[in-house]
Design a binder for these strands. Sequence first.
DNA 1: TAACTAAATGCAACAATGTTGCAAAATAAA
DNA 2: TTTATTTTGCAACATTGTTGCATTTAGTTA
Lengths: 142, 142
Amino acid sequence: MIMEKNVDELLRRNQLSVTGSRRKILELFLQQDGALSHSDIEKKASEKFDRVTVYRTLQAFVEKGLIHSIPTSDNSIRYALCKDECTGGQHRDDHVHFICNVCGNTMCLEEVVVPGIKLPRGYVAQQVEMLVSGICKSCAAR
Amino acid sequence: MIMEKNVDELLRRNQLSVTGSRRKILELFLQQDGALSHSDIEKKASEKFDRVTVYRTLQAFVEKGLIHSIPTSDNSIRYALCKDECTGGQHRDDHVHFICNVCGNTMCLEEVVVPGIKLPRGYVAQQVEMLVSGICKSCAAR
DNA sequence: TAACTAAATGCAACAATGTTGCAAAATAAA
DNA sequence: TTTATTTTGCAACATTGTTGCATTTAGTTA
């Protein structure tokens, strides 16, 4: 269980003023290990925030390096907590993302590192993202 | 240069009846080697099709395995031609996709194969997608 | 070729998603 | 406590995606 103190401190450490919505949304991320989309957040938040506030909060979190976005093929960006070392918009992300075709959840496989690849001459890689879809651990177990 | 005959035949070979919009949209894909988003198509098509028609055409093309979708982190799915062997919705795609941060184009790097990865015990992979962003050949040359 | 059938198109209406400006409220600083 | 700055919520709007239905078109058959 996460204490309120931690959330507040986490926000402050990232140069974000502590407000109700930021606290609540950050708690949602901490309470769960999967990724959340904008609409997930609107659904899960008990008290309702304005849609605009959610957009702006997510944007602020990404900019400060608190969360990172995960591309999907269904037109709904998902966000997940960054594990430390990401600050000031510069996101360094070397793990694989997994999307379960059964439960629909998106999760970070922190322990699976994205393999390096060799691009054709002339191309410069700046970021590499690896998305695996299939059946997740808990869905496969059933 | 692609002849009209080819386009028609390509459509027929994929069990799609030949219509004006399908012909035109397929030509757009053939004329270019990058990927196209829905809005790209609306912009590029000289004659204007109804937005709904474009959506339905893209959907039909994906179902028949003529094109495949490429996930992005900017909430706009892009589509690219499948190189043969994709039929009836079952898309087998083993190449890397590249998104240029300068020109914004998305392209298939057919020659770069997505490396295999080892997932944690319990996970089943069904599809793997690799997205590299950076600077493309033509932008880097300048 | 003409007639028929099935499919595709365009329109309208709508739903969902994302953006901007601005006044009110809340936070952080003095 | 007061002040300065930031955040919030609202309204209005823009963009994107969906659905039902009548009309048109393509493929098929006679």
